[in-house]
């Protein structure tokens, strides 16, 4: 597979490590009310779509960027890849 790195262009997937669903970006606040339930959902509940799936890949043997890759699970077609830090900021994460 080739991962279209947003900074470095197409790169062989053997340079990457796969983590899984990009939902892992949306970590709940551990001090919030009902945190235990929120963390349960965050860590254990996953959609398993036949189609586009946003997932985290780490460019471990490259520039060590975490990427959010959008991949069609039926065809392996990759329709986009963004820096995970940009995605995280866009989802309202900061410090």
């Amino acid at each position: 597979m080739l991962i279209p790195h947003p900074l470095l262009g197409p790169r062989d997937s053997q340079e990457f490590t796969y983590l899984g669903d990009a939902r892992l970006i949306d970590r709940p606040d551990g001090l919030a009310e009902g945190a235990l339930d929120l963390f349960h959902d965050y860590l254990y509940l996953r959609d398993n779509p036949a189609g586009l799936h946003q997932e985290l890949w780490f460019h471990e043997q490259g520039d060590r960027s975490w990427l959010v890759v959008t991949r069609d699970t039926r065809t392996h077609e990759i329709v986009g890849a963004e820096l995970a830090s940009d995605v995280a900021r866009a989802r309202g994460r900061s410090k």
């Binding site: 892992l24 985290l56 060590r64 960027s65 975490w66 995970a84 830090s85 995605v87 995280a88 900061s94």
Partner: peptide, 11 residues
């Protein structure tokens, strides 16, 4: 790196 980039990108 996951924590730094994905959880707290502005830290």
């Amino acid at each position: 790196e996951f924590c730094r980039q994905c959880l707290w990108p502005d830290l």
